Computed example of a mutant assay.
Amino acid sequence: MNIDKELDARNLNCPLPILRCKKALNELNSEQILKIMATDPGSKKDFDAFCRQTGHTLLEMQETEGVFTFWIRKRSA
């Protein structure tokens, strides 16, 4: 998967991972992909809800050793 920007939100608690994700997505063009790494266990449901509410696409989510990695495609303009 071609990543256009990465965001390290590890060791940040809600709502900071979502707020930083929103800021990073604002810096991307439509259809570009943002990779986010977070350690907050609530981030799984937070990013799912964020994408449903904003129209962005949650392409994939993986968990490895307590780190949640999300790939989000920015919605079309």
Score class of each variant (00 low, 15 high):
13 N>C: 10
21 C>H: 04
21 C>W: 03
45 K>I: 13
23 K>Q: 10
54 T>H: 08
50 F>L: 10
41 P>E: 08
38 A>Y: 02
11 N>L: 10
6 E>A: 06
35 K>I: 08
10 R>G: 04
36 I>L: 03
18 I>D: 01
60 E>P: 03
28 L>E: 13
46 D>Q: 08
39 T>M: 06
8 D>C: 10
12 L>A: 01
40 D>M: 07
64 T>Y: 15
14 C>L: 08
8 D>P: 11
34 L>R: 12
46 D>K: 01
55 G>R: 02
62 Q>K: 15
48 D>K: 14
15 P>G: 04
26 N>T: 11
25 L>C: 04
64 T>M: 15
43 S>I: 01
55 G>N: 05
44 K>S: 13
47 F>G: 03
11 N>P: 00
41 P>L: 06
31 E>M: 09
44 K>F: 13
28 L>D: 10
62 Q>A: 08
41 P>M: 06
34 L>N: 11
22 K>H: 11
56 H>D: 12
16 L>A: 13
58 L>S: 07
26 N>S: 12
52 R>V: 02
14 C>N: 07
48 D>V: 14
54 T>S: 14
59 L>T: 06
35 K>P: 02
25 L>H: 03
51 C>Y: 05
38 A>R: 05
15 P>A: 04
58 L>R: 07
27 E>D: 15
42 G>P: 00
15 P>M: 04
51 C>T: 13
41 P>D: 08
23 K>M: 02
31 E>K: 13
35 K>S: 11
36 I>Q: 07
25 L>V: 02
39 T>Y: 03
19 L>P: 00
46 D>V: 00
38 A>I: 03
31 E>C: 01
64 T>L: 15
37 M>Q: 11
47 F>C: 03
22 K>W: 01
20 R>K: 12
56 H>S: 03
49 A>S: 11
61 M>K: 15
50 F>R: 09
23 K>T: 09
22 K>F: 00
46 D>M: 11
19 L>Q: 14
37 M>P: 00
15 P>K: 07
51 C>Q: 06
38 A>K: 03
25 L>F: 01
49 A>C: 02
13 N>F: 12
19 L>E: 13
12 L>V: 00
17 P>I: 05
46 D>E: 07
62 Q>S: 11
24 A>D: 02
60 E>W: 11
62 Q>R: 15
18 I>T: 05
60 E>N: 15
35 K>D: 04
28 L>R: 11
46 D>T: 01
27 E>L: 15
15 P>E: 06
18 I>S: 02
39 T>F: 07
9 A>L: 09
16 L>G: 00
56 H>E: 08
23 K>P: 00
57 T>C: 05
28 L>N: 13
44 K>Y: 14
35 K>A: 10
46 D>G: 00
20 R>V: 00
7 L>A: 01
51 C>V: 07
27 E>G: 03
36 I>P: 04
44 K>E: 14
29 N>A: 13
25 L>E: 00
53 Q>E: 09
46 D>I: 01
49 A>D: 09
16 L>E: 10
7 L>K: 04
64 T>S: 15
31 E>G: 00
5 K>R: 14
13 N>E: 12
11 N>F: 12
41 P>W: 09
44 K>W: 11
55 G>M: 04
41 P>G: 03
